[in-house]
Design a protein around this nucleic acid. Structure first.
Length: 504
RNA sequence: GGGUCGGUAGCUCAAUCGGUAGAGCAGUGGCCUUUUAAGCCAUUGGUUCUGGGUUCGAGUCCCAGCCGGCCUACCA
């Protein structure tokens, strides 16, 4: 649809093409090489405010206060209010919106009528002039000269509602970013969060590394991979589904504190909470364990609350529920949650059939073929996790669920791991990492037997060289940002979410 | 993959029981030198997602397809 050329689009475009041609005929360049920008919308405002402080009080309150500093700003025209011999224009730059005031008589003879009035919404212009405050109090550039920097040949979406069609928002995100300031702000917040994650980890002496995205064996998680062909090696490779196994090789290599912020790819369904490619943070720290990871994630989220959000309380956009990240977070054992929820203190000693029968009473859907531990896990995922709205560390998870973590010292079949659940979702699983190569091989072989994960022999060889004891953690960044911004949908946090290509 | 709802002008939305497809914004032509979704006058713009069918007559009803939203399943 975006490229559809109905008659009307053509009409609107034809008008703009005509203006473009006219400009060229008159020897003007509608797509200039550059514009010398001295200020942004924001720094211009700041410059005017500090100028105002130098004025005697009486003058700064006067509507006829003298003009402030001269600035040169540039941006895209969002609104155009032409009022006879003067106009108000708002332009958008990287910092936001600033207003321009253009008087006919402030421009060279004829320019206002012949050129300026022919500008279109969406055109990018540069302007120069002093700042002043209008009658209604808005800091505005009094334009003394201007230039069309880049002509827009297509019309912008309607200015008041912005773009609302979700399909077009995703396919033409740039239009969403131009017209919807809250969307713009969300992606700026996302960037700031990533920046603070790095700062926090760098501050704790973690080394940021980049490991391959193309894997000969897609390991470290259990998900279907995307397959691609490596021509130079003439064999199939996989896009990575996790970062884990290469980061552990880094631990073997003596990088005791490493992290990677990277894209992983899972060839599975698309939903409100799933995009096939998403951003993952994985962190590994030698000479600590999953309890060290608890401290780390708690500190990291508090750092983001303080340095990005300015609050520990986050209100969910869809229902107004408040998530409180302040203070210490609840810690509870997996088995405890299961027993409470099922109301059965002996749940774990019940037979598979008894468990299956119980799930029917609870009204949750469980595959009748599911293994014993999978039934329990379904109870957790469908009845418990969605209710863990406030931050909760769920600990001592059954060993069948995770092949890469160390067993708890009590040897009761549970693992030294936690899953941090917030907002009804798993935000970060963390383990005391398995460093015994013999057990690790057994666990992975068992999983290969029944699951689709292949054995990464290179990884096992690395472990046989000795990996220091370590805590490790994975954080789904998109979900974390959904949580931190109160958004409802993963697609609001991903600039260009996966969509089926349009048929031409 | 299954279920369900939707697709009307460039954008945001109307259109009663099946009876001539409308409005606002944008565009175009005017008026207007401090506006805030500026205002006023005039005006252009439609293969109603696509293809079939029912009917005297289809944006509206039926069938199929395309694309999307939501729910659901797979994603430990």
């Amino acid at each position: 649809m975006s490229e559809a050329q109905t008659d009307n689009t053509s009409d609107l475009m034809a008008v703009r093409r005509k203006k473009l041609d006219d400009l060229r005929e008159r020897g003007m360049d509608p797509f200039r090489a550059n514009w010398d920008q001295t200020h942004t919308s924001k720094t211009a405002l700041e410059a005017y405010e500090s100028f105002e402080k130098t004025l005697p009080p009486a003058e700064s309150e006067d509507a006829h206060a003298p003009d402030g500093p001269e600035v040169s700003v540039a941006g895209r025209i969002l609104t155009f209010r032409l009022m006879g011999k003067a106009s108000f224009v708002k332009i958008l730059d990287r910092d936001g919106v600033i207003q321009l005031y253009v008087q006919r008589d402030a421009l060279p003879e004829g320019v206002y009528n012949e050129d300026f009035k022919k500008l279109d919404l969406g055109d990018i212009i540069g302007v120069r002039g002093p700042l002043f405050r209008t009658k209604t109090g808005e800091v505005t550039v009094r334009v003394q000269n201007y230039a069309l920097v880049s002509k827009a040949l297509r019309p912008l979406p309607e200015k008041f509602h912005g773009l609302t069609d979700s399909e077009q928002i995703y396919r033409q995100r740039y239009l969403d970013l131009i017209t919807n300031q809250d969307s713009r702000q969300r992606f700026l917040t996302r960037s700031k969060i990533l920046q603070e994650i790095r700062k926090y980890l760098w501050g704790k002496e973690f080394v940021e590394v980049e490991t391959p995205s193309l894997h000969a064996v897609a390991g470290g998680a259990a998900a279907r991979p995307f397959i691609t062909h490596f021509n130079a090696l003439d064999c199939d490779f996989y896009l990575r589904i996790a970062l884990e196994l290469h980061l552990k090789r880094m631990l073997v290599g003596g990088f005791d504190r490493v992290f990677e912020l990277g894209r992983v790819f899972r060839n599975e369904g698309i939903s409100r909470r799933h995009n096939p490619e998403f951003t993952m943070l994985e962190v590994y720290q030698a000479y600590t364990d999953h309890r060290g990871m608890m401290t780390l994630i708690h500190g990291l989220l508090h750092h983001i609350c303080e340095n990005v959000l300015g609050t520990y309380q986050i209100e969910r956009a869809d229902d107004g529920v408040v998530i409180d990240l302040s203070g210490d977070w609840r810690e509870v054992e997996y088995s405890q949650l299961i027993k409470e929820t099922t109301g059965d203190a002996d749940w774990f000693t019940r037979s598979r059939e008894e468990k299956l029968a119980a799930t029917q009473k609870f009204g949750i859907e469980v595959n009748p073929e599911a293994a014993d531990y999978e039934i329990t896990q379904d109870v957790y995922e469908k009845m418990i996790e969605p209710k863990l709205i406030q931050p909760t560390f769920v600990t001592r998870i059954p060993k069948e669920l995770i092949p890469l973590a160390k067993l708890n010292a009590s040897n009761d079949g549970t693992l030294d791991i936690f899953e941090l659940a917030i907002n009804g979702q798993e935000i970060a699983p963390a383990y005391s990492e398995q460093n015994d190569p013999i057990i690790q091989r057994q666990m992975l072989e068992e999983q290969v037997g029944e699951e689709r994960q292949n054995l990464d022999e290179d990884f096992l060889v690395a472990l046989e060289h000795g990996m220091p004891p370590a805590g490790g953690m994975g954080v789904g960044i998109d979900r974390l940002i959904i949580l931190l911004t109160g958004a409802a949908n993963i697609r609001d946090m991903i600039l260009f979410p996966a969509l089926r290509p349009e048929k031409s």
